[in-house]
């Protein structure tokens, strides 16, 4: 049960403001989700380079961590933000770095990887979480954010959205699924692993599982209409864009605004109030059971 925001920039001139605009949208969704918050920022993809986000890294561990990564990927670079770190390394070194991260221990958790995704999440008021990571200063092509009111799973960093279960993919969810336990067991049998008891993580895993079979995102989302039961508004981030899907009943709110410069998504209009040129935007609600998809030209 939550608030969702998303911003996809069509006009590259807005890219320096992506973080600031997203932070402001996220803050307005505080009442919908005061327990925790998270966001994925896409940008800065470089040919041949991978980005890996990890969290749970204590400052005292940074040196050891850095040394360990450099041992498997000499040219890796690091950006530390609060307890998160973004490692940039060559595509070839990515599996080795990831293996190192997953074996490092000390509470360090692999969060996401891909060409352009950086993913941050934490417990607390959305405004504080955004400030902790310096969201306002971030730049990029598109971003997705989430504020969470935990329903049936605990208030933890792991339970915060977005969930990333595949390269450059992430998902945020508002609603409540009703068949996620069965689906999780099926996906686990198929080799997926899950970090939380959260229904939304199952949805993210489900989409990754379908994408891994070679389906396009719109195909995977269409399939979820028959395989996921319950109530949902999903926003899914990919390397080049994002997609939106609402369940057939469509009880959970969703509103979109489009101008020549951007496409914005939110649970409520309030989140758009500070966007440039919003008074002239086309504002509409996504229809149920219809996959909406925006992509930057590759």
């Amino acid at each position: 049960m939550c608030g969702i925001v998303g911003l996809f920039l069509k006009n590259p001139r807005l890219q320096p403001q992506l973080g600031a605009l997203t932070a402001q949208m996220l803050k307005t969704m505080t009442e919908r989700g005061p327990d925790s918050a998270g966001f994925a920022v896409y940008g800065g993809a470089q040919h041949g380079q991978s980005k890996i986000t990890v969290r749970g890294l204590e400052e005292s561990q940074r040196k050891d961590f850095e040394a360990g990564v450099l041992a498997v990927s000499q040219k890796a670079t690091f950006v530390f933000r609060d307890d998160h770190a973004i490692i940039t390394c060559s595509d070839e070194a990515e599996p080795a770095v990831r293996a190192f991260v997953e074996g490092f221990g000390h509470g360090v958790v692999f969060v996401s990887s891909g060409d352009s995704i950086e993913l941050y999440k934490g417990v607390g008021l959305p405004e504080d979480v955004a400030a902790r990571f310096g969201l306002s200063e971030m730049t990029g092509t598109h971003a997705i954010g989430h504020t969470r009111m935990a329903t049936e799973s605990a208030v933890t960093t792991a339970g915060a959205h977005p969930f990333s279960t595949g390269p450059d993919q992430c998902l945020v969810h508002n609603g409540s699924l009703s068949n996620h336990n069965t689906l999780r067991r099926q996906l686990v049998r198929d080799g997926l692993s899950f970090e939380t008891e959260n229904d939304s993580e199952v949805a993210a895993g489900y989409l990754s599982w379908r994408l891994s079979k070679g389906e396009r995102l719109d195909e995977a989302l269409t399939a979820s209409l028959s395989d996921l039961d319950g109530f949902y508004t999903f926003v899914v981030g990919t390397r080049d864009g994002f997609a939106v899907l609402r369940d057939p009943v469509a009880c959970k709110p969703a509103v979109m605004a489009e101008t020549e410069d951007y496409v914005a998504f939110a649970s409520e209009y309030r989140a758009f109030a500070g966007l440039p040129g919003i008074e002239k935007a086309t504002v509409f609600e996504p229809e149920p059971q219809r996959v909406y998809h925006w992509e930057h030209a590759a």
Partner: peptide, 14 residues
């Protein structure tokens, strides 16, 4: 069985 104009705790708050 559901309220006509809200569903879930985030909307209940409103």
């Amino acid at each position: 069985c559901r309220h006509p104009d809200w569903t879930g705790p985030d909307d209940l708050e409103i």
